[in-house]
């Protein structure tokens, strides 16, 4: 399949899925009414409020969360030249979660609506700064992986400590549910806060696409082709931190998409890391939106969590893929 065709198909699929997510929900509004209320409903129309305040931000949230996870996953795999890499490896999602958990536990989240997303983004950017300081001197990406593993472990341990010491069982369960990841409570205020970070992250990662292509030949050859390895690392770390920090800020911890999507699309784009960025961005949007549709169709009244459902569907799919690849190589 040609690259253009693939991108066009993925784009149409993402748009189609986004429209479907607008039409389903517990309010049980008919599709025609949904669209009418969204477009021409006035302020007194309850359906218009549901469409504009709940479903539209949820759809847009799914779209940008998916794009962010897809592009960051593809960039990380390209940068580390490893199909098992994912944005969480940098410790940014763990640190973003820690920031959010601290705000949830302290009760700040209840007092000020944007406290949680701001703390999550702050946590991610702090993690990026630590990563840059710790791995800054070495040119190799190995230092980055090791620092990321250590940082993830630390953030995870502190998060557990907060839960461990939490005097309030309600806060603890709120934290647990938040960490499972969900698009259910995304508001336009949150989107307004997160979107600039996401877009900045996308732009930084797309700016790295040629360097990621060159890196296919190894760090030494890429440096010989004029790639500034330090600058590339800066782009990847800041790009992932900004986009994944913002994802965690509005949707909680959503893993897996960043790992699976680039993997699924790699062969279709001919293995090229630069081209995989855009394909993965669209593929990520498709996966998140499709999962969010599943969340609402399977158990509309139980508030299933996005992260849970995605791993339930994605993990077996991924195992199947690994099995298939193993068979081809054997």
């Amino acid at each position: 399949m040609s690259y253009r065709l693939l991108i066009t198909l993925l784009a149409f699929l993402a748009i189609g899925l986004a429209l479907i997510t607008l039409l389903i929900g517990p309010a049980g509004i008919s599709p025609a009414t949904s669209i009418a209320s969204l477009l021409i409903g006035d302020r007194t129309d309850i359906f218009a409020i549901v469409m504009r305040e709940i479903r539209l931000p949820r759809m847009l949230g799914g779209l940008v969360v998916g794009i962010s996870l897809g592009v960051a996953g593809a960039a990380m795999q390209g940068y580390l030249r490893n199909p098992l890499a994912e944005p969480g490896l940098l410790g940014v999602s763990g640190s973003a979660a820690l920031g959010a958990v601290l705000v949830l536990q302290s009760g700040l989240a209840g007092m000020f609506g944007l406290a949680l997303p701001m703390a999550a983004i702050g946590g991610a950017l702090l993690a990026a700064i630590v990563m840059l300081l710790v791995s800054g001197r070495s040119r190799s990406s190995l230092a980055l992986i090791l620092a990321g593993v250590a940082l993830s472990a630390l953030a995870g341990a502190v998060t557990s400590l907060v839960l461990n010491l939490s005097p309030n069982p309600f806060a603890a369960s709120e934290i647990m549910f938040w960490m499972m990841g969900s698009l259910a409570n995304i508001s336009f205020d949150q989107l307004g806060l997160a979107l600039p970070f996401m877009v900045a992250g996308w732009l930084l990662l797309f700016a790295a696409r040629r360097s990621l292509d060159a890196l296919s030949l190894g760090e030494d050859a890429a440096a010989g082709l004029g790639v500034n390895l330090r600058q590339l690392r800066l782009l990847v770390i800041l790009g992932c931190a900004a986009s994944i920090g913002a994802v965690t800020a509005i949707a909680g911890v959503v893993g897996f998409a960043g790992l699976v999507v680039p993997h699924l699309l790699r062969r279709l784009v001919g293995g090229e890391p630069g081209r995989l960025l855009l394909a993965s961005a669209l593929g990520g949007a498709c996966l998140i939106l499709a999962t969010d549709i599943a969340v609402r169709l399977v158990a509309p009244d139980r508030d299933l969590k996005l992260g849970v459902v995605m791993a339930m569907i994605g993990a077996p799919l991924f195992l199947h893929l690994v099995w298939q690849t193993g068979r081809q190589e054997a």
Binding site: S216, D220, A221, R266, G270, G271
Partner: peptide
């Protein structure tokens, strides 16, 4: 510069790998 390690990380086409030389 042609390093000793013959690394090509992804299943890219021969043409793509050679094109990288024009970067």
């Amino acid at each position: 510069w042609l390093p000793q390690e013959r690394e090509i990380a992804w299943p890219v086409s021969v043409r793509f790998a050679v094109r990288l030389g024009r970067l």
